[in-house]
């Protein structure tokens, strides 16, 4: 089954992806992120036609605890965050928990 790529974020963030042909997008202006980002992300995560969700790293801070946890652990669809951070903040914790060592830190230092 073919799936789509979805983008969630501010209109400035999503426009570029729309230029590349992404048609599933959720525009949430910066001033409404606190109130509406949770719902927008939940809608996209529940959409079976979406295979990859793209978000900005900084937007994760606007999410409530539960939604953020879903975003970090979701496999179908998988959420890829881009932007200021190294990405995979949740992954880093998961690695620490599963392997017992902070492998990402080691790689960052090297």
């Amino acid at each position: 089954m073919s799936q789509e790529i979805a983008v969630v974020g501010s209109p400035e963030f999503t426009t570029g992806f729309r230029l590349a042909g992404v048609r599933r997008f959720e525009n949430v202006p910066d001033e409404e992120k606190d109130a509406e980002l949770d719902d927008a992300v939940t809608d996209v995560l529940e959409d079976e036609g979406v295979g990859i969700v793209v978000m900005h790293d900084d937007d994760l801070d606007y999410l409530s605890r539960g939604v953020r946890q879903n975003v970090e652990t979701s496999v179908e669809p998988v959420v890829v965050t881009i932007g200021s951070g190294t990405g995979g903040g949740g992954l880093r914790d998961q690695i620490k928990r599963a392997i017992g060592i902070d492998l990402m830190e080691e790689d960052e230092d090297s």
Binding site: I5, I52, V54, V78, V80, G88, L91, Q94, A98
Partner: peptide, 24 residues
């Protein structure tokens, strides 16, 4: 440029899904 970025995102999605599943 955004098309190239999408290609990278797709690759990252593949690798990160594999990582999440393996970590679980």
């Amino acid at each position: 440029a955004y098309e190239d970025l999408l290609e990278s995102i797709i690759l990252a999605a593949e690798v990160e899904t594999a990582m999440k599943k393996m970590l679980r």
